[in-house]
Design a binder for these strands. Structure first.
Lengths: 352, 352
DNA sequence: CCGAATATGCTCGAAACGAGCATATATGGA
DNA sequence: TCCATATATGCTCGTTTCGAGCATATTCGG
């Protein structure tokens, strides 16, 4: 009846996926890595949980908690991730969501090994940084140490004008080698301008991944040199652009930051980062730690209260240096009321 | 220096991922499937490209184009996907983006096989349905055939009140068996209400995946019975709720619809579905095919033109039954101007 | 030549938003 | 004690965005 359909197909779908015992063309040792970007905010500083890498191998760069997915032990991908995090850091993960699955070749520490023997699935987890959850191992490190150009809390970071912009402009002059992909690609100069807000273009705080990928492509990230990327060795004065990480973990962290910044605006996920009770100012400071710029205090209050995201506990927090602040808690009922909103803060006027 | 860190870790990160030849605990035959949900709009009908399944196996249910990822042949996941789609349908994919990676056990046709031997990575591709790109195999089928409850173009679909609502209410009465996961779970009744807009709750057209997962969990999707899901056999009168697909392909398609509906609002992806030249009314009809409800024509024009998404070609399309409509084309320059917007249409007043 | 159908420009009121003024209530030092 | 200072919090006001409708322009089919 539909025999004519299988004309050009090499494996018929039924065979290849529904009968896994027929592993015709599968790589025997294709591994799946589960990687956790665990984010918190500690003292108004956004932090990620990292483990120090093996000093013998790549100079003790950091790694995210991770481990291989083992379908015999792990019921789901996420439960596998939780098990690895528990095992490596003692942390009992709360909120977690899948980010992306990466498998580009050459994106790890062993160049010359052309085919990727693993695929990494990145996850974002949000938690409180304070001593909860029994952390036994690992280190909370500010995510701006890995991405200093993302820290706009004190205005535009100097590193952009000093180290990044001139080199990206130089890189844009050189022609791209291969135009892979079928999508119409955007010119290097335009990409640099849009990503880093050059020449008056507004800064988009959500483009964290695009920016890191651009630096990697331009050979400016340490990982590009490590991977033997084309172009990385052409820089005679490659500056230090944040701390590198092992494998593609900095890329995963960049994806996590992008997602966090986007999601905080349309889903009530900030509260995963907050203690049970907090003042509106503390909430605002947490949002600003994530997003960067400063928000209008009165409007922030109006927004958060107006959306029904919080409710007062009835108590106040004194010793704040002024009038005592009312304490609030997350109003969980919003989750039952239509699509629960986030802290929809509009982008402040671009200050480039 | 950081020896104290490796206390409880079973595999040190460096070993497990960076030295893949040490495949200590890896499943030998863990395969990675690449699945493409290819979406187009044909005659104001949103369609997906499917291939008829093997009639010998599961009753000739449909499958999405897919195949295993082979790192020896495929440079990236996406290029592997493109190769399989090309191979199975002849289609040369344009826009494509990764959706999600699924690996729940039991989500395929062979019950009793507890451990998942494959992981499926779903992709969304957008294209024009018309004869371009040399389609040699496969079938464009309206996505509402798989998800009839999602079609709100002619008001609230009857199937909700007739077949879905009463059964979900009954299901909500029964207690949930196991509360897995560490997140505070929402009660069944609330989930059903929020997902399907029951009891006056507004309909959220982006919750396509949540709705399908709920039906699957409640044992109301054909796939749940096929997989031997708990509860699926308890329905003595399980209604036909859309066409089933093989493996977890309907879940992937649901994810694709969710993503399409969300993304069309904040990125200019509609134009992947349009011919080079089109009238604003045709554009509006395409958006409505995706999102469902009807939009205010004048405001739609104002929005689309005001955002600089289109530019007039100078020509008009006559024989439209009335005054000739100006032809427009996508203004590609918006991609170079800050975050390029989508067709930000606000949800119309809920008509439940 | 008229009625039907679609295209397109414009207006108006409501709601949302950005920014600032004014007031309340703590703390800490003169 | 009392004031300077710092933060908290309520309110206003002009602007922008948004939803909705009116009015006019152009074509086609009888």
């Amino acid at each position: 009846m539909n025999m004519e359909l299988s004309g050009r197909r090499k494996p018929t779908p039924e065979k290849s996926q529904l009968a896994p015992e027929d592993d015709h063309e599968l790589e025997p040792s294709l591994g799946i890595g589960l990687n956790a970007a665990i984010v918190a905010v500690s003292d108004n500083e956004p932090v990620a949980l990292v483990v120090r890498g093996d000093p013998d191998s790549m100079g003790a760069t950091d790694v995210l908690p991770f481990g291989p997915f083992n379908p015999r032990e792990h019921r789901t991908l996420e439960s596998g991730l939780r098990a690895w995090v528990q095992d490596q850091t003692g942390l009992d993960l709360g909120y977690a969501e899948q980010l992306y699955t990466f498998a580009d070749r050459g994106r790890h520490a062993t160049p010359g090994d052309a085919a990727p023997n693993y695929v990494s699935i990145g996850y974002l987890a949000l938690t409180q940084a304070v001593g909860h959850h029994g952390l036994t191992n690992g280190l909370w490190r500010s995510w701006y140490q890995y991405f200093p150009w993302e820290d706009w809390r004190r205005g535009r970071p100097e590193i952009i004008a000093r180290d990044i912009e001139p080199r990206l402009k130089a890189w844009a002059e050189k022609p791209a080698l291969t135009t892979t992909g079928t999508q119409p690609s955007i010119a290097r100069g335009d990409r640099a301008r849009i990503c880093f807000g050059l020449d008056g273009t507004a800064w988009d705080e959500e483009k964290v991944l695009e920016r890191f990928e651009l630096l990697y492509e331009a050979g400016l990230a340490d990982e590009a040199a490590r991977d033997g990327r084309n172009g990385a060795d052409e820089w005679t004065d490659r500056p230090k652009l944040g701390l590198p990480m092992q494998a593609d973990h900095r890329r995963i962290l960049a994806t996590a930051i992008s997602r966090t910044r986007a999601k905080i605006k349309y889903r009530p996920v900030v509260f995963e980062l907050m203690p049970d009770e907090f003042t509106l100012y503390e909430l605002q400071k947490t949002v600003e730690a994530i997003l960067g710029p400063h928000l209008h205090k009165q409007n922030f209050r109006r927004l958060v209260e107006g959306a029904g995201l919080v409710e007062p506990t009835g108590e106040v927090k004194t010793r704040t240096g002024g009038r005592p602040a009312k304490l609030f808690r997350f109003r969980r009922e919003v989750l039952l009321e239509r699509p629960a909103p986030g802290v929809r803060v509009s982008a402040p006027p671009s200050r480039s």
